[in-house]
Design a protein around this nucleic acid. Structure first.
Lengths: 215, 215
DNA sequence: GGAATTTTTTGCGAAATGGTACAAAAAAGT
DNA sequence: ACTTTTTTGTACCATTTCGCAAAAAATTCC
């Protein structure tokens, strides 16, 4: 048998190929279910979200939930990972786009605010998780710290580039500025959760940008 | 009756006067019980702290707890109020002390870090509460917002004074700087909760102070 | 000493919680 | 048609949870 006979006819990277699974077909799409779970966890936090709530929101009954995602903690972690992937994707473009530093920062914060305020002020899931679960669960803590680190690094890269392009004074320290930029992310994440209106949050952001760029 | 006859014999403000209560004496001191409750809430958050936990920690059984502080939510609110009172008291001195601005900020952040890191990294209760309960409970949200507002105002007063004393450039905006100072509080509160070591938090603080004072 | 008052203690109960066992259902393979 | 495989749906379990009622204990007032 020189030639593989069952090769499928040149689907690109065969992503949406129905793979002819064997047993009863799933009644849900794991991705949208995970999205619903994330919504709930973001709204109420880990402890206040019951499996019944999750079951109702996803349309899956508890055994199915369990089979698909593991126990509550695993589901939380998978939801969190999903959040981070989404947030990272949303940020990626705007971070990549090498606009003048001021414009760049403005856009970054605008995207962040979109995330924090969408469908009710949900805040930043990383911050929420840090405040609650990260203390007790080492795995979750590691993810949270990774999130903070990534953000710091991304901001630092922005400031380094800006400095290199002469948009920043020579005495400016990209690392320090990055931490301040992250701090500004954190403060709007928290305040948004306490339902501070977007206008005020934007004012905070603009003030912070002014100070950072003048430094 | 010119002279009040039943005036008590000059106890200063009769604080530790046993008031001869009528029934069975309490087996606990409400203040220390509330302190224990606060400890628990700070460690685990509202939802993950059960009345049994609180009962065990305070030494009061559930009905006594209930009688003394009301239901779980009320107990949480009273614990939170206690936290705010304590934190405010701790900050009051250092905020009042009109040192040169840099020294003053350093001390403020040192006190904050003491609070956030005492007995395990507990973070800032206001930030924790904002992240979880403030979304759903208007009363709690009001307290949280009040907390943020107070902090912003206290920092603003610092910067106003500093500017007046010529320690700050004329272009510096005390309100904006105050929000950045609060943001720095928030970022170390969150990061401390994720167990970032004190050294790193102090580095963040020092960098932030540098930028704020150079602005 | 007895009544009044306040708190503690015990114990109940109804609901919710996380998790699981097991049969029925729905598909593919033979 | 029958078996295999996978998922669903129902029901259940043990535990925990919050809250409360009612009795017992400890104290002051008369």
């Amino acid at each position: 048998m020189v030639q593989k006979s069952k090769r499928p006819p040149v689907t690109k990277i065969d992503a949406p190929v129905p793979p002819k699974r064997r047993g009863r077909p799933r009644a849900y799409e794991p991705d949208v279910a995970l999205g619903k779970a994330l919504e709930l966890f973001r709204k109420d936090g880990f402890a206040a979200t019951s499996l019944d709530d999750l079951s109702a929101a996803t349309g899956m009954n508890r055994p199915s939930l369990y089979g698909a995602f593991g126990d509550k903690r695993e589901l939380f972690i998978k939801s969190y990972r999903r959040y981070r992937d989404d947030a990272r994707a949303a940020m990626a473009d705007v971070f990549r786009n090498e606009l003048p530093i001021r414009k760049r920062l403005e856009r970054i914060y605008a995207v962040a605010l979109d995330i924090y305020l969408e469908s009710g002020p949900r805040g930043c899931f990383t911050v929420m998780t840090a405040a609650s679960e990260a203390v007790h669960d080492p795995d979750i803590r590691a993810m949270v710290l990774e999130g903070f680190g990534e953000l710091d690094k991304a901001f630092a890269a922005c400031f380094r580039l800006a400095k290199q392009k002469g948009e920043l004074s020579g005495s400016a320290d990209p690392t320090v500025l990055a931490q301040l930029a992250s701090a500004t992310i954190h403060t709007i994440a928290i305040r948004s959760r306490a339902q501070v209106p977007r206008k005020e949050l934007e004012a905070i952001v603009n003030g912070a940008i002014d100070v950072m760029l003048r430094a």
